[in-house]
Design a protein around this nucleic acid. Sequence first.
DNA 1: TTGAAAGCGCTACCAA
DNA 2: TTGGTAGCGCTTTCAA
Lengths: 340, 340
Amino acid sequence: MSPANVTINDVARAAGVSKSLVSLTLNARPGVASETRERILRTARELGWTPHPGARGLSTRRAYALGLVLRREPRTIEVDPFFASFIAGVETVLAERGNVLVLTVVPDRAAEERAYERLVADKRVDGFLLTDLLAADDRIPLISRLGSYAVSLGEPPGGSPFPVITRDYDAGIDDLVQHLVRLGHRRIAHVSGDERMLHGLRRRERFELAAAAAGITPVVVTTDFSPEQGAEATKALLETEDRPTAIVYGNDPMAIAGMGVAHERGLDLPAELSITGLDGSHIGSFVYPSLTTLDNDPAGWGTAAATALLRLVEDGEPGDVALPPARLVVRASTAPPSAG
Amino acid sequence: MSPANVTINDVARAAGVSKSLVSLTLNARPGVASETRERILRTARELGWTPHPGARGLSTRRAYALGLVLRREPRTIEVDPFFASFIAGVETVLAERGNVLVLTVVPDRAAEERAYERLVADKRVDGFLLTDLLAADDRIPLISRLGSYAVSLGEPPGGSPFPVITRDYDAGIDDLVQHLVRLGHRRIAHVSGDERMLHGLRRRERFELAAAAAGITPVVVTTDFSPEQGAEATKALLETEDRPTAIVYGNDPMAIAGMGVAHERGLDLPAELSITGLDGSHIGSFVYPSLTTLDNDPAGWGTAAATALLRLVEDGEPGDVALPPARLVVRASTAPPSAG
DNA sequence: TTGAAAGCGCTACCAA
DNA sequence: TTGGTAGCGCTTTCAA
């Protein structure tokens, strides 16, 4: 008989006790003689028994699962290097707590809402990991209304009843701008990401502050974070009269697309144009010139978020986490501007 | 009372029937008077009731969930553009059948095996989607032994008791090689991906066949599919005496990294070096020069795989699927070789 | 410290 | 065509 079919009854019988005691023991509850406890634990191990989360959940009203709903338009779906590592980080936490990750990818807002509703109604998950926070994000009230839990990556502008994981990008962005200024750049442009997204908006704001502090009024072009629009924005910027000597991109895929455009125009990088990203991806090390950017720690976000959410769900204890601040990673794509 | 807490009993009571009839109706089983059926359906809708999959599963021994276990070494984890779209494709199928995707990311072989074992032992999933097939893949016997189901992306060399989704790359690779040959290339190199992976191996083999058919003996360098090793391989190739005029990379991220190296050496692309990928990614359109490659349809793989696996799990009907063959996408990174 | 029994929400079997 | 009842594998009273 495969371990998969061993039940609590088999263990109880083999250990010569009642189911209740097996249950108490399993859940590390007091009131079981330590000798009995040992025996139960031993026979459970011998029989290879592990409780069935589905059956447990029927009593405890838990799913022992966390949900991640990703809204991705078909066009931008391929470009996000963040998630694999993020999920790996989540996984390390879930695995050791007997939980599991339920992943859903939806194309639009309507499907997203339905996904949350179904997952809750079907009791598929005990809470949600909220990524890609929007400036006006209705997922928090939605989840609240549904009576479920969540943890968000980034601080929602309207505040949140749920735990929040944050990471300070301000100092990193300041450093990045100063790095460019020190190299001698005065005409610095920013290709901002989707500003309906909170981190896109915040980065742009901080960029403008940092630029202002250096006495610079930067050009800002807004995009949707896709390489397409990154390329478009770059073309537009390079055609302006006083074209920028440096461009700061809202993410690395756009920066790479921007490099493509610059190369295509025959610009000598980085002499004729300095380029930076803002969220260190792996591939950024291998383009030419290798990309100056801010570092990132997707797995760190993952473990922090999963830990916080599980604490909330299991112990009712909310708790925010502040990740180590983002730091500047200087590589080869930034240099002093050549001519004037 | 929120719909989440409505049970089959509430529906039965409200409709003035027994639970049994509600259950039969819900599962579209015969033996319910159509008038009764209508009434039950209506009150279920009014009450916003939807059966609890966990409770159902306790009786039916199903999880109403499919599993995807991704083994990703920390180093290569970020670079794979395939999965977001693949999962989106899977999702469309699962959503309309009331199923869900359980995703696990593991760092190594041992963790992978544990993941499969746990998922089955805990009855978390009814079957697995098998991606990144290895030439010697022990997941199929493993899952077999565990008594679970699977569907594989690509045909396992040892055969498989499970459905197989295939896509023909042979003609595409032939076209790609002929495209280069027609442009005038004779020294064509191949930076092959991990040849323990089935598609890596098969592509290399086909590449060599196609080259041989054109009377060419190509240089082949083997890597692990990472941009690092793609870059390394490129450096090595460019330093050889008779350096290649064209390089065919096993995947797009390596091709992009290869471009980086070539740019760094000051090569004029594509005149001095033609470059191609083999698995059309989105970002490949936006590098410079834009990447010639084979097309890909991750979402198509996803829907096909999910459909096949669900049919197997639910109806016991195995059935293979052949996706439309890969086609050559000529963009700007290939051109006639310049000098000799 | 232990065991019996009820119940979580559903399916499935057997009678009626 | 219907309803009653016994599980599915676990947790949780409540008594003993």
